[in-house]
C-alpha cells in the first residue's frame, strides 16, 4: 500500500511539474507547483522523513506559493493574443517526450550499472532528538531561517503595504 501511494505521488509530482512548466496561465502554473510540492511532502512523510515533509509543506506549498501568487496578482493581466498562446504551447510541446526519453535512458543506465541508493550515513540515522539536532548541529540554519522569515516579511511590506502602483 505504501509503495502504491509513493508511486502514485511520484506520477502526480511529474504531472504537476509538467503542467507548471507548460501552462500558459501563471496562476495555474503556481498552483501546479504547489500541488507538486504537496505530492513531494506526502512522499517524504511516507518514507519516514516527517520533519522534512512538514518543512516542504509549510515553506514550498505555503510561503513560496503565497509569494508567487502575490507577484502574479501584482502584474498586469495577460492580454497576449491567441498566436502567443499557440507559440507557447508549441515551444513546450516536446517537453513531455523529452522527459519520458530521459526517464527511460536513466532507468537503462541505472539497471545496466547495478546502481542503487546507499543507506544514509551515521549522522542521518543517529537517534538524536530532532530538537537536539536543530539546536546543537544546525545553529547556522536557524539563523538562516530567521533571516528568510525577515526577508518574507519585507517582501509583504514592499509588495502590499505601500499602495499598488500598477
Amino acid at each position: 500500500m505504501t509503495t502504491f501511494v509513493i508511486v502514485l505521488c511520484l506520477v502526480l509530482m511529474v504531472g504537476f511539474a509538467l503542467s507548471a512548466a507548460m501552462l500558459r496561465s501563471m496562476l495555474k502554473s503556481a498552483v501546479s507547483l504547489a500541488a507538486m510540492s504537496a505530492a513531494l511532502a506526502v512522499i517524504l512523510y511516507m518514507m519516514g522523513a516527517v520533519w522534512a515533509a512538514l518543512f516542504e509543506l509549510s515553506v514550498c506549498v505555503g510561503l513560496i506559493t503565497v509569494v508567487f501568487i502575490s507577484a502574479i496578482s501584482l502584474t498586469t493581466p495577460d492580454r497576449r493574443d491567441e498566436a502567443h498562446t499557440k507559440d507557447h504551447r508549441q515551444r513546450f510541446a516536446a517537453l513531455p517526450f523529452i522527459l519520458i526519453a530521459a526517464g527511460v535512458a536513466l532507468i537503462a543506465v541505472l539497471v545496466s550499472t547495478g546502481f542503487y541508493l546507499p543507506q544514509p550515513g551515521e549522522e542521518a540515522v543517529a537517534e538524536a532528538a530532532f530538537n537536539q539536532v536543530l539546536w546543537q548541529t544546525r545553529q547556522a540554519d536557524i539563523l538562516g531561517q530567521i533571516l528568510i522569515l525577515l526577508a518574507g516579511a519585507f517582501a509583504v511590506v514592499v509588495l502590499f503595504k505601500e499602495g499598488r502602483k500598477i
Binding site: 519585507f154 517582501a155 499598488r164 500598477i166
Partner: peptide, 19 residues
C-alpha cells in the same frame, strides 16, 4: 540556506519599484 535568503531578498529588490 543562505543561498535561499539571498534569492528571496533579491526577488523583492528587483521588484522594488512594483513596475
Amino acid at each position: 540556506v543562505f543561498l535561499e535568503i539571498t534569492g528571496v531578498a533579491s526577488f523583492v529588490m528587483i521588484a522594488l519599484n512594483k513596475e
